[in-house]
Deep mutational scan, measured.
Amino acid sequence: MQRVNMIMAESPGLITICLLGYLLSAECTVFLDHENANKILNRPKRYNSGKLEEFVQGNLERECMEEKCSFEEAREVFENTERTTEFWKQYVDGDQCESNPCLNGGSCKDDINSYECWCPFGFEGKNCELDVTCNIKNGRCEQFCKNSADNKVVCSCTEGYRLAENQKSCEPAVPFPCGRVSVSQTSKLTRAETVFPDVDYVNSTEAETILDNITQSTQSFNDFTRVVGGEDAKPGQFPWQVVLNGKVDAFCGGSIVNEKWIVTAAHCVETGVKITVVAGEHNIEETEHTEQKRNVIRIIPHHNYNAAINKYNHDIALLELDEPLVLNSYVTPICIADKEYTNIFLKFGSGYVSGWGRVFHKGRSALVLQYLRVPLVDRATCLRSTKFTIYNNMFCAGFHEGGRDSCQGDSGGPHVTEVEGTSFLTGIISWGEECAMKGKYGIYTKVSRYVNWIKEKTKLT
């Protein structure tokens, strides 16, 4: 034993070699072989497995989906700052455009905790909710729209109204504003409101030439003092309507412009014939205590009207009353817009006519005020429907199939267009061939041609 100890002390290297040989010859039971080890760690190889990531292109799944990435790591994937920024906006807080917040056709661009709407022409605001041009839906104005110097929408209202708090709607500024039905039992019968379409306001006024200088022999019209197929109006439903009495009662109609003036057809009036105007009328054979009678003290036909040349060209006249009318729910003026808007309103496509005229061709006159909704007829169809001249200051309205029309005794009465609950004068009943005849239409004086003249002559002093 002493000898062994001496050998170990003198030859430590020998001992180490012996131990190493023993270990190498022993069977290893701690580690699995290569094949079995792979069965336990069965993990798919990654895209760049075996390579240094710093030297390969980034992978979106590896960089940002398996674990949260930084902007720089995302930049490695896209290799483009702009594309990385677009991805980053949604990656950080989701897609803010998912709810489609942009209105009126706006395009949404996502941002971090926010979004941006790219608005089409005519709109602005956070969600493109603000109209900035009158060309689109009248700028959301209830009545009139004008573009300011910086191309912003400025709404306005006709006389007797003021802008509401929203700067879009119009509200009454006087007790009985024009064009409004205020009798409670008839307010439910107000005709369907007309909503502004998209309009090209630059070209809204037709490029028409008034044929002022045409000389033409007097034409022989049949029954051209021209509501057939209409309905009984309720008291106060058309408070701007008046009836004219002269040699015979209810020979023509008219509309209240203001307390002192009536507008009617020029062919209705004769110099030297006494005319009485009755406002607030409903049943011409009954006294309903809503009527107001006034005498006409002055007749002003349009300066281009000449019955000797043509009885229905420039067929418009103004009547001055001896005493002002007292405005109330049964006696209310009709609204008159400017030339541009009167023309736009007419193009809405349908209007209402009213009167006490004959209820059928050569038949009896109506006792109760009649009204009828009539569609506008395109000019080409209008011209083809008659052998008589249709001037540019006239328009056609009615039904091709016949059966409904204005008729004798309705002449001078109103053709009105309702705009968001307020009625505007767009025409004056003038003439036609018979009444409600198939293929024939009622012919009306186009008020847009005469609004400046009306307003100039009827100013209240």
Rank of each mutant, 00 (worst) to 15 (best):
K311W: 04
I112H: 15
W118D: 10
L41G: 12
H361T: 10
Y391P: 13
G94Q: 09
N104L: 02
H400K: 09
R294N: 00
G105A: 13
N343P: 02
Q185N: 14
R46Q: 14
H314M: 01
K247C: 03
E98Y: 12
S107N: 11
N306W: 03
V228H: 11
H400Q: 12
I275W: 03
E270S: 04
K457N: 15
H302R: 02
R75S: 05
G351E: 02
R226V: 11
L19P: 02
R364C: 05
V263I: 13
V447R: 00
S411E: 12
A173D: 13
I299S: 11
K311L: 09
P175D: 06
T342C: 03
D198A: 12
N5A: 11
D338F: 03
C28M: 03
C435V: 03
G246I: 02
Y115P: 03
A307D: 06
D378F: 03
K168T: 06
G349K: 10
T194V: 12
A397G: 07
N222E: 08
L20Y: 04
K109V: 11
L52S: 15
Q237K: 04
V263M: 03
T133M: 15
L20F: 12
Y201I: 10
W118T: 11
C407W: 12
E456N: 12
L20R: 01
S411M: 14
V257I: 04
W431C: 09
S430E: 04
F78V: 14
E434F: 11
R162Q: 09
E124L: 10
T85Y: 06
G349P: 04
E456F: 08
E54H: 09
K234G: 10
A149F: 12
H34Q: 11
C268E: 01
C117A: 02
N127F: 14
L41W: 13
N104M: 04
L23I: 11
V183F: 09
I428A: 00
N135W: 09
V278P: 00
N80T: 12
H267A: 03
N283K: 06
G439N: 08
C18H: 03
A279G: 03
V242Y: 00
D232C: 07
C382G: 02
G357K: 12
E61T: 15
P239T: 01
E285P: 08
K339Y: 14
C268M: 01
T271F: 07
G106T: 03
E285S: 13
H303E: 10
E98G: 11
S350F: 11
N304I: 03
H267Q: 04
D405E: 15
N151E: 10
A380V: 08
E124W: 09
Y91R: 10
D198C: 06
K126C: 05
N166G: 04
H302Q: 03
N104F: 04
K126N: 12
T215C: 04
K457H: 12
G94W: 06
V451E: 03
E285T: 09
C117G: 02
R75H: 15
K293I: 07
I334F: 00
I344P: 02
W431T: 04
V227F: 13
E116Y: 11
K440D: 11
D378M: 04
G106S: 04
N213Y: 07
G412P: 11
V447G: 02
F121P: 15
F55H: 15
T81D: 12
W431K: 08
P375T: 10
V326H: 13
V353L: 05
N304C: 10
E86Q: 15
V243L: 07
L376A: 05
C407Q: 04
N203Y: 08
G236H: 08
V416Q: 07
D212Y: 13
N135E: 07
N138M: 10
L130T: 13
